[in-house]
């Protein structure tokens, strides 16, 4: 009998939900340092997906490690089974279509499976110059599933049409994916309100699960494009007590995964607190 946790953060709920996307044996890739994705993959690896192959930085099939704000790279490197260059990585995983999950996030996402990490506004006269997409604009097409996570579900993020298409899923339905040599899989977005999925080009995103306490109309009113709203939508499974314990005591004792959920003005203070804890852990400060 599962004991569900009574006390958990929305970050922990999203983390556990994202971890469920990892199946045992999956090849799972990390790009930029995104604590929520790291915590999810490592949690999956030490629970239901011990045969998954995790890749980060140059490290391939790295041992699950305790997450920290500054040590992800050296931890992955020191625990790796193999070290690859980016070219070896993309030849073997990305271009060969062997990747299963590489969770991404984006400044804007729209109803067509497009993401925008480039600019808000006109491309040549940007209101906001974003970071660019790194691998994201292409991996969302190449990997089996396109998984996105969005800590702030709003009409600012979920827009009818992105200002700039940095990248796109491109091939969405199972038939068109298989025909072009890609493995079929859904577009699935895990947000702070819900889980929503798109499986066919001409069908809208469907709300699959609502987080505890969230109503369908909350999701609809915070989304800038039409959604399929089934008449009955199940609640997202809450984290179990054991999952919360693993996250807080083993995987992420410094609380890095909650960083993205802190309001702008609290972030620097939270960051300094985490860094101090890391210093204390090695006997400094």
């Amino acid at each position: 009998m599962k004991q569900y946790a009574k006390d958990y953060t929305v970050g922990e709920l999203m983390c556990v939900t994202l971890a469920k996307e990892i199946e045992d044996g999956d090849v799972v890739v990390l790009g930029s340092f995104t604590p929520l994705a790291y915590a999810s993959y490592i949690l999956a690896k030490i629970t239901h997906a011990p045969n998954s192959c995790l890749l980060a930085y140059a490290a391939v099939d790295f041992r699950p490690f305790q997450l920290s704000f500054i040590r992800a790279e050296s931890s992955a490197t020191r625990g790796s089974a193999l070290m690859w260059t980016m070219l070896e990585d993309l030849n073997s995983v990305h271009l060969k279509g062997r990747g299963d999950v590489e969770a991404i996030s984006s400044i804007q996402a729209d109803q067509y499976g497009n993401i925008n990490l480039s600019v808000v506004g006109e491309y040549d006269r940007p209101k906001l110059r974003g970071p660019g997409g790194a691998g994201a604009p292409e991996v969302i097409k190449m990997h089996r599933k396109m998984i996105g996570y969005f800590p702030g579900h709003s009409k600012m993020t979920f827009v009818p049409k992105v200002d700039v298409i940095t990248g796109t899923r491109y091939l969405i339905g199972a038939q068109e994916r298989i025909k072009s040599g890609y493995r079929p899989g859904p577009i699935r977005y895990i947000t702070n309100l819900c889980v929503m999925t798109k499986e066919e080009r001409d069908k809208p995103f469907r709300i699959d699960f609502l987080h505890p306490g969230v109503k369908a109309e909350d999701v609809v009113s915070n989304t800038g494009f039409p959604l399929e709203v089934p008449s009955s939508i199940p609640e997202t499974e809450k984290p179990t007590e054991e999952q919360v314990r693993l996250l807080r005591e083993e995987v992420d004792p410094y609380g890095t995964l909650n960083f993205d959920f802190k309001p702008g003005k609290e972030r620097l203070g939270y960051l300094k607190e985490m860094l101090n804890k890391e210093l204390q852990a090695i006997g400094y400060a």
Binding site: I46, R63, F65, Q66, R71, S74, S75, G79, A281, I282
Partner: peptide, 10 residues
Amino acid sequence: RRLAREVKFL
């Protein structure tokens, strides 16, 4: 350097 060395595997 110490932070890079002191990593913990699960």
